[in-house]
Design a binder for these strands. Structure first.
Lengths: 185, 185
DNA sequence: CTTGTCTATGCAACGAGTTGCATAGCAGGA
DNA sequence: TCCTGCTATGCAACTCGTTGCATAGACAAG
């Protein structure tokens, strides 16, 4: 399981509440791992009872109190151990590809709109990633001499950018193929 | 759920048994969707009881008998309906990226071997994809005028090839970054 | 004749992930 | 005052996916 380890990494980068973690999983961490708030709250409970993380009740004004979690020694050790274990290269799950191959048994042209929708979504993601890169790494506000953590965050973000660019080029290939099949038959 | 739809597509391309489907999920369909044999058998049962597929007992010599499944009218309709429904652009789950960002709180250089292992695995995948492409689409044995189904299979395979090439380039970037961090600190 | 391997199917238990719902404090606007 | 929206946490039920195990026929190697 990687969710608990993703949470450890995020809490090491900055302690926070379940709610805050959920929002991070919609942005920076979300570039490479997703999770809903229900999943996060459940795992936080388990990690706390396993002694991986510590809790601190934080009273707030103008909003409900929150529980701020931070990584305990046991959690750090668990992360370190996991980092030294080999993992399997991930297996792909690409629903759109299932649809594309399925289109052979339906009307290929009917998929064009769907593929264009996906293209739009990936265009937006790429724009977000590039904006984040400028803000944190390549723009004028970025640190002149980044530390190891920033270097590693940047290389992961470059992976996201490369993925989105590759996907956009492929979706164009898919669209061209669908258009070619449409009129001809 | 896309597993049942992936199975429908595969059975439309060619009827087969659960065992045969499991092997297809290790190769061609495995390029974009994975499943174990247990998952496949379970879903086949459900699809059969829902009337999506038909079964035929096939006695065999020199090996156990098998159940050959083929797509029924209801299954074809279900696939067609699904093809016309919009789906969400997939969310990413990249365990290695979690590790890379986690390396900031451990020894970055310790990850080098792991990343090299992944690089090797992706190199092999790319070679398999390219061999498949030559065999089925671009080589001398390939059909001169492919039909819609073959065109669509090819464009999906091109997506897999593009993904592996992008991943290899990124892993080189990761390795360069880890080497840079190693000596310096 | 035993052991291992390949084909072929399946159960049981568990863990991961999703969906729907519920609660509650506080702020701002109609 | 009521409604909406944001912060903040959580339960319950369900589906999806993984892991371990079991069975069984046939063949090949030792």
């Amino acid at each position: 399981m990687a969710l608990e380890h993703a949470i450890l990494v995020s809490l090491l980068e900055k302690p926070g509440s379940g709610y805050e973690l959920a929002r991070r999983f919609e942005r920076s961490i979300g570039y490479f791992w997703t999770a809903t708030h229900q999943q996060i709250y459940r795992v936080l409970k388990r990690m706390e009872s396993d002694g991986w993380i510590d809790v601190r009740e934080v009273p707030q004004q103008a909003r409900p109190d929150k529980k701020e979690y931070s990584v305990a020694a046991l959690g750090r050790a668990a992360l370190s151990q996991w980092l030294h274990e080999p993992i399997e290269p991930e297996s792909v799950r690409h629903e759109l590809a299932v649809k594309i191959r399925g289109a052979a048994f339906d009307d290929p042209a009917a998929l064009i709109r769907e593929v264009e929708r996906h293209r739009q979504a990936h265009t937006e993601r790429l724009a977000r990633y590039l904006a984040g890169e400028r803000r944190d790494f390549t723009g004028p506000e970025a640190p002149a001499t980044p530390d190891a953590g920033q270097e590693l965050q940047h290389v992961v973000l470059r992976g996201g950018i490369a993925y989105e660019r590759m996907t956009l080029a492929w979706l164009d290939d898919v669209l061209a193929t669908l258009h070619r099949l449409g009129p001809a038959g």
